[in-house]
């Protein structure tokens, strides 16, 4: 920050509202480590954080095995919940997860995205959602809400475009092997989730709701999702597992660009020479699967460079050789 810029100072001061954090259920040493990391981090984060009583907290950090009653009552308040899981535990479906042992880098990214969400809640998201009153976002929104409830929802079912079922039960998705296969190939659309009459069939296989979210969003609306913004630059924090999810060359290219640099949707479309609709779907899917962070818009790389690079020639040749056609 430019120290002479008084306006910047003032703006900063307005944003500098301290956020309250409370933790429950953590082992004593983990809790202590968390508190000292917070001390170390304060001053390096865009928003200052302070530990406080549960009632005043903006964010709750809770071990996944904490008292379910406390967790349930917290999530009814609609404030962000950060779940702490053990080193080898499977990843739960809530958007904010810290894996033990908690590392500073991990905590830092997490706090930044939580602060981001808290800041964007009333202003940015609501009005845009109001402009999309139609039902196109229903499947994704229903899935998003389910995922935010970190697994307490009972069996719900959605219907695919070929008339098969996809279930969600306590944070895990289920589908027939053939349905999962077709989802992977991007052949199916999925409707909204609702409580259904049928229980999960015994023959269905379990998979992650993050994977389901990815599949659904990739075949979802071609608009940018209401919770993303045209003017914001996005970067991948983690790559999608294309081995598990299946991936076309076009998707791999987008992921490679978005992991090297933060892009606004329009610039990413330019750089990749891909239709903006495909870029929207990619960003929607990646954000649904919890893989995206927004980053400050820096100078955007020159898009035309990709077409002339020796590596794109190489990639083209390699694809022809490997028999993978884009």
């Amino acid at each position: 920050m430019d120290m002479n810029d008084v306006n910047a100072h003032e703006r900063e001061a307005i944003q500098m509202q301290t956020l309250g954090i409370h933790d429950i259920g953590l082992p004593v040493d983990a809790s202590r480590a968390l508190h000292s990391m917070l001390q170390v981090l304060n001053g390096r984060l865009r928003t200052p954080w302070q530990t406080c009583h549960l009632d005043r907290a903006d964010v709750l950090i809770a071990h996944a095995a904490s008292d379910p009653a406390v967790l349930a009552s917290w999530s009814r308040g609609g404030k962000p919940l950060v779940l702490v899981i053990d080193e080898r535990a499977p990843r739960p479906t809530s958007p904010f997860v810290l894996r033990q042992p908690i590392r500073v880098m991990q905590l830092m990214t997490m706090l930044e995205s939580v602060a981001e969400q808290l800041a964007s809640r009333p202003s940015a998201v609501q009005p845009r959602r109001a402009r999309n009153p139609d039902s196109t976002w229903m499947p994704l929104e229903s899935l998003r809400q389910l995922m935010a409830r970190h697994g307490d929802a009972g069996p719900l079912v959605a219907t695919t475009s070929d008339g098969c079922g996809v279930w969600i039960d306590r944070g895990t998705a289920y589908a027939a092997v053939s349905t999962l296969q077709r989802l992977r190939l991007g052949e199916l659309r999925v409707g909204a989730f609702a409580t259904g009459p049928q229980p999960v069939p015994a023959s269905a296989v379990a998979f992650s709701t993050f994977d389901l979210a990815w599949f659904v969003a990739l075949k979802g609306p071609t608009e940018l999702a209401p919770w993303l913004e045209r003017g914001t630059a996005y970067r991948l924090r983690r790559w999608p597992d294309f081995g598990r999810l299946g991936g076309t060359s076009a998707l791999i290219e987008l992921a490679a660009l978005a992991s090297a640099h933060a892009w606004t949707p329009a610039r990413l479309a330019e750089a990749s020479c891909q239709p903006i609709e495909d870029v929207h779907r990619f960003l929607n899917a990646a954000s649904m699967a919890g893989l995206v962070v927004n980053a400050p818009v820096t100078a955007q790389p020159r898009a035309a460079a990709a077409a002339t690079s020796m590596w794109s020639r190489f990639v083209g040749d390699l694809r022809r050789h490997l028999g993978r056609v884009a």
Binding site: F242, G243, G247, S249, I252, E253, A255, A256, L257, S259, A260, H261, A271, A299, Q300, P301, R302, A303, A305, A306, S309, M310, W311, S312, F314, V315, L318, R319, L322, G323, R324
Partner: peptide, 24 residues
């Protein structure tokens, strides 16, 4: 096919880096 996926992904990363490397 799976080994190809690994090599293609690596090539895409190298390609993306050249895009990134040039000044705007």
């Amino acid at each position: 096919r799976d080994v190809m996926l690994l090599v293609e992904t690596l090539a895409c990363i190298l390609e993306a880096q050249t895009t990134e490397g040039l000044p705007s």
